[in-house]
């Protein structure tokens, strides 16, 4: 695929998202408020037990984990499911399919611009604030590089899952139900609502075998571990790579099959 074409879409996305000055502000303010809520909530939660460490996590560990999970979520959430659903309902999807680009890539690159602005406006400020506030709780070393690699995998897995969910919209008009379900389930199973370390036993093991934990839990545990054992690091990234490839294939195949079905039925 022509890489220039992709970046043109990214650029257009950045311009588009910068148009909305007020909404950028709302996003930033909203995130701050959200962070405050999480902070107070978990402070109260930790205050209710006698120990400082619960399930191997201190208050500041939990806080960093959850805050960055939210920041990652904001950066990765492209509202792809809404978009596909909306286009399917309005019939605009037919126009998109005529574009000389695979729809999956077209949509990804169209939204990459928003992701870039989100990265600078929400993730980066949050990251800096958290680093300063927790005063050295985030190790700053090679783990940052591993973190970036891990996030790239996470973005890819997340997009594949979004795309699969979006594809379901071809079969139903109820995009609302799907849209509601997706983030809640993904956030819970990926450890973004409550760190996976807190999960009671059978759950914890089950969740480890699902792709979702690769989206938030994996990059965050890579980030918080300043001195990782190479074997552990490679396992985490390896599992991510595995899910990345698998979900990519599944999402492509599912889209292809669904599209054939739809065109046959003349939907």
């Amino acid at each position: 695929m022509n890489i220039k074409r992709c970046f043109t879409l990214t650029r257009a996305g950045i311009i588009e998202s910068l148009q909305f000055r007020l909404s950028t502000l709302v996003v930033v303010a909203g995130n701050l408020l959200y962070l405050v809520v999480i902070y107070h909530l978990w402070q109260a939660i930790f205050a209710s037990v006698d120990t400082d460490v619960v399930n191997g996590m201190t208050f500041s560990d939990t806080l960093i984990y959850l805050v960055l999970a939210t920041a990652l979520f904001n950066f990765m959430e492209m509202y792809v499911v809404w978009e596909i659903g909306r286009r399917v309902q309005s019939g605009e999807i037919a126009l998109d399919l005529l574009k000389p680009m695979k729809y999956r890539s077209f949509l990804f690159w169209s939204y990459s611009g928003t992701a870039v602005t989100q990265f600078f406006f929400t993730f980066l400020p949050t990251f800096i604030v958290v680093t300063i506030v927790t005063n050295g709780a985030i190790p700053l070393g090679w783990n940052l590089l591993y973190f970036v690699i891990s996030v790239v995998f996470a973005v890819s897995i997340n997009y594949s899952i979004d795309f699969i969910t979006g594809t379901i919209c071809l079969y139903t008009e109820s995009i609302w139900g799907i849209n509601m379900m997706k983030p809640v389930i993904v956030l819970l199973l990926s450890g973004a609502t409550i760190p996976i370390a807190f999960f009671p036993e059978p759950f914890k093991t089950i969740v480890q075998y699902l792709p979702f934990q690769s989206i938030y839990n994996a990059p965050l545990s890579v980030l918080l571990d300043g001195n990782p054992e190479p074997a552990k690091l490679l396992t985490t990234l390896g599992i991510q790579l595995f899910w990345c490839v698998l979900m990519n294939i599944v999402s492509r195949v599912f889209w292809k099959i669904s599209l054939r079905q739809i065109t046959v039925n003349g939907g």
Binding site: R11, I14, L18, Q19
Partner: peptide, 16 residues
């Protein structure tokens, strides 16, 4: 009045 291009959009962010 919107300005053009990436630079213009950034400018629009601060003054309109």
């Amino acid at each position: 009045n919107r300005r053009e291009g990436l630079k213009g959009s950034l400018k629009d962010l601060f003054s309109r």
